[in-house]
């Protein structure tokens, strides 16, 4: 039967195309909004007075900036010279950097010790860790605010509301996040490699440095990146605990109230370009060092 396979094969090919189409659709839904943000960074106000720069228009007279009115690049200049925008981004970046660094160290250490702990001790800690992730952020934010104010009132060395309190609040959440990610990989890794290292004369520190950490690195980096992202665009917690400090999300939210200009889009575009570049560089470095498998599965054995 020479023709028997043909209809089945063509149906198979059709199915494959459907899957590809679906994947393309999913990616469109995910990334189209970002593309729109970038495009509208070059948008003009609805009406620009004769002879004036499109970006000198008062935000309240901007008109409908969600409609394309023609292109300009002046928003990038405006955004980078705005008295609040760039400092706010710098503050957010600096907080996120420290938060992710500290949370990664704490979370990794917690993951290693919890994974080896007796169940009787591990379970209560686990519950606490999950609590910080499931309790709504607004609840944690209110609780943090009360705690920080009371703590400062009763203990003068405790910092006033500001960068430090934003940092403290975010570390609690991020450390839990890092711990979950790192522990999953650590448990999946098993203890045989560490035993092999001990067997070959590697002490606890040498083993951690040469065997455990390199094997955990993908999870540690993933945890650090996630904490950074969480911290950078977090609004709720800083809105309660910021004192007088303005983070980037806080500035954007308040800008929305007075009418948002494409300058926000322009700054977002700059940040997007920087972030994507950083991720690409990280990926390249990781591939070079051979730690790019984020799955945590043991390497396949060729029979």
């Amino acid at each position: 039967m020479p023709s028997a396979g043909t209809p089945r094969r063509s149906r198979h090919r059709f199915g494959k195309r459907m899957f590809t189409g679906w994947a393309v659709l999913v990616y469109l839904v995910l990334y189209l909004p970002i593309v729109v943000v970038v495009i509208f960074a070059f948008n003009q106000p609805t009406s620009v007075p004769q002879g004036a720069s499109p970006c000198s228009v008062d935000p309240s007279r901007m008109g409908n900036v969600t409609v394309w009115n023609g292109g300009t690049t002046c928003w990038f200049h405006t955004a980078l010279n705005d008295p609040t925008y760039v400092p706010a981004v710098k503050t957010s970046f600096w907080i996120a950097f420290r938060a992710s660094l500290i949370a990664t160290v704490l979370g990794t250490a917690a993951a290693l010790s919890l994974a080896r702990m007796k169940k009787r001790w591990r379970v209560p800690f686990d519950v606490l860790v999950y609590l910080t992730l499931v309790v709504p952020e607004i609840v944690i934010a209110v609780a943090s605010l009360i705690f920080f104010v009371q703590a400062h009132n009763n203990l003068s060395i405790f910092p006033t509301l500001g960068e430090s309190t934003i940092l403290l609040g975010q570390i609690v959440f991020s450390a839990s996040l890092v711990m979950l990610i790192v522990r999953a990989r650590f448990v999946g890794m098993g203890s045989s490699l560490e035993e092999a290292s001990f067997d070959l004369g590697g002490g606890p520190i040498a083993t951690f440095r040469q065997v455990t950490l390199p094997r955990l690195l993908p999870a540690v980096i993933a945890g650090a990146l996630l904490s950074f992202t969480f911290s950078f665009d977090d609004y709720v917690l800083p809105a309660f605990t910021n004192g007088t400090v303005n983070t980037w999300p806080i500035v954007v939210y308040s800008a929305v109230r007075f009418g948002v200009t494409p300058a926000v889009n322009a700054l977002a575009t700059v940040m997007l370009v920087v972030t994507v570049t950083l991720i690409l560089i990280t990926g390249l470095v990781l591939r070079r060092s051979g730690a790019s498998d984020l799955t945590g599965a043991p390497p396949p054995t060729i029979p």
Partner: peptide, 17 residues
């Protein structure tokens, strides 16, 4: 790590990295 014995493990336990 302070014993003068070495082991060949069942699943080899080679360092994959």
């Amino acid at each position: 790590y302070r014993r003068d014995v070495n082991t060949v493990f069942q699943q080899y336990a080679l360092f994959p990295h």
